[in-house]
Design a protein around this nucleic acid. Structure first.
Lengths: 234, 234
DNA sequence: TCAAGGCCGTACCGTACGTTACGGTTCGGC
DNA sequence: GCCGAACCGTAACGTACGGTACGGCCTTGA
């Protein structure tokens, strides 16, 4: 299933169209799913006729908006050469921190909300828009694609021990996200300061290493303090 | 607004009203958020006038439906006396298994979907229905309330080591749920057989014990096989 | 037996919103 | 300067649905 999203995203969009999609995105964050075509047109200072001409219908606009946002968060893959326990730990903590920042951002919450709201058991009309697949593909699965090479490199370097990279990834995912995403999606006020995110990232990383770190050599696990200095502060 | 039916959950509901809410619940599972008052009335063989009389408006019906479902899953608390590592392990695995069954059930997915869909940044009208809070209260927080005494008992018995029961619970939560709930909510087909759930519960439990188990005594951690026989097979 | 009330079925109303249509304006090409 | 295309703003249309009204049926109680 996992959907196509093949012809990747931000292609064949004029600057004006990108501006319109940005307006739709802002509106989505502010108003949730019940954004209207009229509101988008007004916010973007364009006519509804143009919206329909460009995106077909409301579904098309929603899909294009989600894909547009997805195309903006592309990140370069991390290379795992010259891996040491320290650099692996830093990499994992950075992944964790980045992921927590993503799932706690207004944009991510809004996008996940609309995708979940439209992921009902019975899809309307013909076109399987499948916003959920797009969000999943650019969220959870994108994270897995980026993180797994790091895990594999860690295993190659004798720093990690696991038989199933997918299972290891999912454990890392669980240790990082815990109940944060579902609580935010359900409207729980949950303030995540940068400091809290950094601390959680370090904790998740330490826990992951405790579970999957290779038990070789005399050096014990890093202390959290060894990490704290290296996490991004902004 | 809210009509009568305001106070807690399944009280003061006639049998007929419960039947109507069951019909609404079934419809919610089948059709997602876009269930209409007309559809509920037809399914429940009652008039719309009655729906409005009993539940005030659509929000009231939705709220009552969610509360009705919540009232059905009340479970007795687990007592933690005579705790051994084996019994603690079994308890944790059972919690994990139960929780995975809950979050992967059609009903839970439907309820979470509607609650998330209505948890937008700007709440409509006056009444803060806050379905999200209800779902959260009867889901994540109810689990915490039931599990924490077990964790505390485990600590009292010298089987677990942690300083913050909330943090320990959230780690357990993350190890159990991982990416399951978000994937299901986003429409990912993810078949969870009972066998897979049982295996995941055991794995999560073992990982939790590896992180929070007291490092005392010569006995190593239980092998997964020790557990497999004790998990519910239905 | 009759009256009152609760409820079913359905017709009806008002509104919100997706979608379409159209007149007016700008702009690039000839 | 002229033409057509693209686009803006807005009005208009159709429908879906939340909410209300009403007639008829059934039950209860005097």
């Amino acid at each position: 299933m996992q959907a196509s999203v093949d012809i990747d995203t931000g292609e064949a969009l004029t600057e004006r169209q990108k501006a319109v999609l940005d307006a739709a995105l802002r509106l989505l964050v502010e108003e949730g799913d019940q954004l209207t075509m009229t509101a988008v047109a007004r916010r973007a200072s364009c006519s509804k006729e143009t919206l329909y001409k460009w995106f077909g219908d409301r579904d098309g606009l929603l899909t294009a908006t989600v894909q547009w946002q997805a195309s903006k968060v592309r990140v370069p893959p991390v290379d795992g050469k010259g891996l040491t326990l320290a650099s692996l730990t830093v990499s994992l903590a950075r992944f964790a921190s980045d992921w927590l920042k993503v799932i706690s951002s207004d944009t991510s919450i809004a996008l996940n909300r609309v995708a979940i709201g439209r992921a009902g058991p019975i899809r309307r009309k013909d076109g399987n828009d499948d916003l959920g697949a797009i969000v999943l593909e650019n969220g959870r699965f994108a994270l897995a694609r980026r993180l797994k090479p790091v895990l594999e490199a860690g295993r190659q370097a004798g720093l990690l021990e696991f038989s199933d990279a997918e299972a290891a990834f999912r454990t890392f995912f669980g240790l990082v996200a815990r109940d944060v995403q579902i609580r935010l999606l359900l409207g729980d006020r949950l303030e995540l300061t940068d400091a809290a995110i950094g601390g959680d990232a370090v904790r998740a990383t330490q826990q992951f290493l405790a579970l999957y770190g290779a038990k070789t050599g005399p050096q014990g696990p890093l202390e959290p303090d060894d990490l704290r200095s290296s996490r991004p502060e902004i």
